[in-house]
Design a protein around this nucleic acid. Structure first.
Lengths: 242, 242
DNA sequence: CAAAAAAGATGATTTTTATCATATTTTTTC
DNA sequence: GAAAAAATATGATAAAAATCATCTTTTTTG
């Protein structure tokens, strides 16, 4: 359900400023003083972004920082051979665009909403203040450091695990990080193509492997929704036993 | 030629302090004032590390920051299935251990000298001063941001390129970044096993592919040394044309 | 709601890559 | 400098994964 890029995302008026936002406690904005926050709050816009919509595209010069209030964007990159590789899926509270903000370069990733989202946009001009705030810079440094570690881990897994292991790992990850509904189905649902773009595999291979997991009663399927039935077996597969 | 870890690397007495070190201009230490630098300089140790020696090991709590004065360490990580995956090769001027310094966590990578090295070690205590220095923090932020971008790029290449493409890419990278001798052989020489640990492939597959490259007159071999003969063809292979 | 498009499923085949086995060469060690 | 160990080479085979083709189901669109 991918919709075309709109030039302007609809803006939502919110009564509350950043000072009262709980979300910011999840990211580098948490340590700012109220004066700085008020400045940011005045200049920020809250945007509604529909499922499938593009937030920004690799190669763009970002005009500011995005703070995810609700929903999940997938961050991806087109490889030389033209395939889309999803690098990671962000969550509530995460800042997007901090890397390009710091380095001054164009963004190397595209962000697309996997579900209906709410995002705060903080224009570049306000951000120069942030970059001079020691608490913000330090928080950001910690965050990026962790990102770097995780990126390295992903590389190792991509290099050393086979497709089956990577699929098991992904399903466990989705279950842990995005939760399930009452019946145990993972909240975040991805198309088979999206899953294959995370795993770095062909869509047919991905579809087949998911089918196999179902036949082996490791998972249950309801439309796009996936439910892990046998967690123990799934963990074993991730570790390469079978 | 991997030697065992020595508890103490031999220390080298150097007449010059950090103030006069050209290397530091390559990293986040470049913007520090002379007083801070003098403090660092007083507490630092210059270590000689032999080819094959371990500098630090994943899981360790690092006692400080390492600044590469000479030589190249490989930064690697053991995957769940026990294989060593080389994440990247560092060069003169790079800081090692900054990530764990920032996050406070144990290091996730091991560093092993690929050739004889000279490394300055700055103890943790001095580093707290650095972390409070805005110029340093900002420089580091820029550096880590670029690392993150490169890490993401590596992931995409690992996911989307086949072994042949990855080998071609690596050879071009080595040639570009570590230079060649007068006869055109790449300065940095890696064992086939090390190359396979970069590519994330089996050693036999790697050896075979290097042999094939030689048979097709793309490269010339002299012992461990590799020389790219046909750059154009190599670039085409990297891009997936054959 | 019907047509079109996209997503999912599955079989057949080919390509890629890993694994196993076994030489040969090079390097290290005593 | 000889023996041992490690690295390199190569054939044979198996396993993993991609590709191609076709069909069904689901979703989207007018």
């Amino acid at each position: 359900m991918v919709r075309k890029l709109k030039n302007k995302h609809p803006k939502i008026d919110k009564e509350n400023g950043c000072e009262n936002c709980i979300i910011r406690h999840l990211n580098a904005l948490k340590d700012l003083d109220n004066i700085t926050l008020a400045h940011i709050s005045d200049s920020k816009e809250t945007l509604a972004i529909d499922k499938g919509e593009l937030i920004f595209k690799e190669g763009q010069t970002l005009k500011g920082l995005y703070c995810v209030k609700q929903g999940n964007p997938r961050l991806s990159k087109i490889s030389d051979n033209g395939k889309d590789q999803i690098i990671r899926i962000a969550s509530k509270g995460e800042l997007l665009g901090y890397r390009t903000l710091v380095s001054g370069n164009k963004t190397n990733l595209s962000a697309v909403a996997l579900n209906n989202m709410e995002v705060c946009f903080i224009p570049k001009e306000q951000i120069s203040k942030l970059i001079d705030d020691k608490r913000f810079t330090k928080s950001l440094l910690v965050f990026i450091s962790n990102e770097l570690k995780e990126s390295d881990d992903r590389l190792v897994n991509m290099a050393q695990q086979n497709v089956k292991q990577r699929l098991a790992q992904l399903l466990i990850y989705l279950d842990n990080n995005f939760g399930c509904d009452k019946k145990g189905f993972i909240n975040l649902s991805l198309s088979r193509i999206e899953i294959s773009n995370i795993l770095g595999t062909s869509k047919e291979g991905c579809i087949r492997m998911i089918s196999n997991f179902r036949k082996e009663n490791l998972i249950d399927l309801k439309g796009k929704k996936i439910k892990i039935i046998n967690f123990d077996a799934m963990v074993k597969i991730e570790l390469g036993f079978t």
